[in-house]
Simulated assay, not measured.
Amino acid sequence: MHIHNLSKTPSILNTFISELRDKVIQKDSMRFRRNIERIGEVLGYELSKSLHFENRNIETPLGISSTQLYKNEIVLCSILRAGVPLHNGLLNYFDAAENAFISAYRHHKHNPESFEIVVEYLACPSLEGKTLILADPMLATGQSMVATFEALKPFGTAKEVHLVSVIGAQKGVDFVSQSFSSDTHLWIADIDDTLNDKGYIIPGLGDAGDLAFGNKLQQ
């Protein structure tokens, strides 16, 4: 797998990440969502450099301008619900992309320390021969990414696969590296070293879904 960790090069991206992590600033859910969206835009821009381009002539009011435009057919798939702001950021740049949505959540069978990933809702166009961008803001264990990709297989074989995350744990990065083909790309804003016993990234930022949209109903 090709891993693109953008935190290795200091940039304005660091500001957005630091505000996501800050326990005071992140209480503003609107700002939290906007920072994830902005990170999605940065990751989308970097990802775009790896796409396939072709020369096209654009007619201006005064003549012809030749430029290179990407020719990939993109399907952007996000994992609900935390993936929505990240999806919006990517869609701001890939505005012609088709869209897919999937719900994948942790189901704790016996205790809080063990869980399985359950996929319920899924809406997706054909992926055959297209470029799949699979977005999930938190790459903790990596199980959600893998479960989602498996659920998408009946919709066709993508020509290229790109994974996009905001913050990941090294364990999750290693897991997806082993689970996806070697030509898959991972675009990620930062990678932390540790997971706790409940599978949350340390230091991370907390529960991205709750911070963006409010606490889930406890059953």
Rank of each mutant, 00 (worst) to 15 (best):
R56Q: 12
S66M: 11
L195D: 05
I12L: 15
S66G: 08
Y45Q: 12
F101E: 09
Q26E: 06
K109H: 15
K23M: 05
E54W: 07
G142R: 00
G204M: 02
S144H: 00
I191F: 02
K159T: 04
F180E: 03
R38K: 15
D197P: 13
Q178I: 10
V24G: 12
T141R: 01
H185E: 07
L211F: 10
R21D: 00
N111G: 03
E37N: 11
L43S: 02
L127N: 05
I202W: 05
Y93M: 15
A140G: 02
A169M: 06
K27I: 01
L91Y: 08
G172E: 00
I191N: 02
A140F: 00
E54P: 02
S144E: 00
R56S: 12
Q170H: 11
D183G: 03
S114L: 13
Q143S: 13
S65C: 14
Y93I: 15
P85S: 03
L20P: 00
T157R: 12
Q170N: 13
P137E: 07
F155N: 14
A100R: 04
G142W: 00
L211W: 06
G89N: 08
R56V: 13
S126A: 10
F32C: 09
Q218H: 14
K198P: 09
N88M: 15
D95G: 14
G206E: 05
Q219W: 12
E19G: 06
D22Y: 01
D174H: 08
A96Y: 15
Q170F: 07
I3G: 00
F213R: 00
S182Y: 11
P10Q: 03
T194N: 15
D22G: 00
E113R: 12
C77D: 08
L43Q: 01
N111L: 06
G129F: 02
Y45M: 14
Q143I: 07
P61I: 09
S78H: 10
I64D: 06
Q26G: 03
A169D: 03
P125E: 05
H108Y: 13
N196P: 00
T141H: 01
G83L: 08
S103R: 09
S66N: 12
A100E: 02
F32V: 05
Q143F: 10
L76R: 04
Q170R: 14
K27P: 01
H108P: 11
P61V: 06
N57P: 13
R81M: 08
S29Y: 08
D95S: 15
W187P: 03
M1Y: 03
M138C: 06
L13A: 10
W187V: 01
P154D: 09
G40Y: 05
I74H: 07
